[in-house]
Amino acid sequence: MLTPEHIRDFLDEVKDPEIPVLSLNDLGVITGIEVAEDGFVTVRMTPTFAGCPAMEYMRAEVEQSLKRHGVQAFTVQMSFSEPWNSNKISEKGRKALKEFGLAPPQPYQGILVLDILEYAECPNCHSTNTEMRTPFGPTLCRSMHFCLNCRQLFEQFKPL
């Protein structure tokens, strides 16, 4: 009998196409998995950034993954009912981001203040003596920062 845990394991194979080291589970966009009595599977997802063009691709990949594992009756729903925020990126995901050379978003409590938007730890030398260059990078989820210590430009997964 298929359980939600099985499905979650399948989804570990599905990666963010823009950051191929990050699974959808670690990204925190899978908000619910249900398996009904009759075996019907419902997977709920929520977008990172509402306009992220990779979300439709990720949804299709989830469907492919379910099919590959022999799940025949399923639906994958995208909604804002449990909105994403960057605190939902797992510890494992944060480590993977760092190894990928992308500064992970600083976890925060309560409201996201300007200081956290601008804060970033350099993934090259780990200095926090850095400044934000622009909040818009090569993809919607990345901002551009400059490290004043090793004098290199780097990208951060934006806190949201």
Partner: peptide
Amino acid sequence: IAFSSMAQDKLG
């Protein structure tokens, strides 16, 4: 890049 990104966000 900024205006293109904001365009994508706004359409979303």
